[in-house]
């Protein structure tokens, strides 16, 4: 089996995480089964480990690491299999941790899924220990983005993971699926042929693949809450393209020799220092 050396992340910025993921997965064939070698890493980050979890589970790939510190962290966050039930989550999770382990909500039991998501989001909120309005600002984007997986991806499971960095005072959240991606969703639901880059733009304009005109704003409002209400940064990857947003600035980038099957979203929010009001950003 082909071995893929996972390179060190060159810095702690969210775009460096994107760079690491790109270097790891570029040139892989669609669905190729490989062994990821994480021995060169001295730390990991959500936009690297969560897509790798989803990739490993989806393709039957494997991983190894000779770095015991990284290995024990990966084990603690339940890499790569993740936690799939409320009972397992309660058993695994301890207080005073800075991470919320990889959780895998599934389509088949929507009430169990809703309860697992609730535990995940409540724990993120507890870790952040911030003030008025923060809980809503955590719950709304995670809830909408996970809901999108089950409404649009045509896959039966999604992946979510959160890591707080106490010294840097920010929280990284990653949400991933291995579904059909935005471009294929427009093609299959509306007969529209869009490049990945155009599909990102249409999704951000609120053009829903559903017939109801009041729908299609979940992704856009989530990005606005992260970037404008909370002053964070937001990255979305689908197929061969990515969107990078900070404040009101939007940039799209082509990822040559790279293809992410599905959608991967990562965002970073600084710990709020005052009240947060999400309601002006809802449409």
């Amino acid at each position: 089996m082909k071995e893929v050396i996972v390179p060190k992340t060159k810095g702690d910025a969210l775009v460096n995480q994107l760079g690491s993921l790109y270097e790891t997965l570029k040139s892989l064939k669609l669905g190729e089964k490989v062994k990821f070698n994480l021995s060169g890493l001295d730390w990991t980050c959500p936009l690297l480990v969560l897509p790798l979890s989803a990739y490993i589970n989806d393709t039957g790939s494997s991983f190894e690491t000779s770095n015991t510190r990284v290995g024990s962290y990966l084990s603690a966050i339940s890499f790569p299999g993740g936690i799939r039930t409320v009972t397992s989550f309660r058993r695994k999770v301890q207080s005073n941790k800075t991470y919320v382990p990889i959780s895998v909500p599934k389509r088949d039991n929507n009430i169990e899924r809703e309860r697992l998501e609730t535990l995940f989001m409540q724990m993120l909120n507890e870790i952040l220990k911030a003030g008025k309005g923060t809980a809503s600002a955590i719950y709304q984007p995670v809830g909408e983005l996970v809901t999108n997986i089950f409404e649009h991806s045509k896959r039966d499971e999604g992946y979510i993971f959160g890591q707080f960095y106490p010294k840097k005072n920010y929280l990284d959240i990653c949400i991933v699926d291995r579904g059909r991606g935005l471009s294929k969703a427009y093609k299959e639901e509306k007969g529209l042929s869009f490049s990945d880059q155009r599909a990102i733009a249409e999704a951000m304009r609120g053009n829903s693949t559903k017939p109801n005109k009041e729908r299609g704003y979940g992704l856009r409002t989530s990005k606005r809450i992260v970037c404008e209400a909370m002053g964070g940064g937001f990255i979305l990857i689908t197929g061969t393209s990515a969107l990078v947003s900070v404040g009101k600035k939007e940039q799209t980038v082509q990822l040559p020799n790279f293809y992410w099957q599905g959608v991967a979203i990562a965002y970073r929010i600084p710990r709020p220092t005052g009240p947060i009001d999400i309601y002006p950003y809802l449409e």
Partner: peptide, 17 residues
């Protein structure tokens, strides 16, 4: 929605989030 198109090298060099 108006996004600026950038290449990956420029993005990794210039954007800090």
């Amino acid at each position: 929605f108006k996004a600026e198109e950038v290449d990956l090298t420029t993005l990794l060099r210039e954007v800090r989030i």
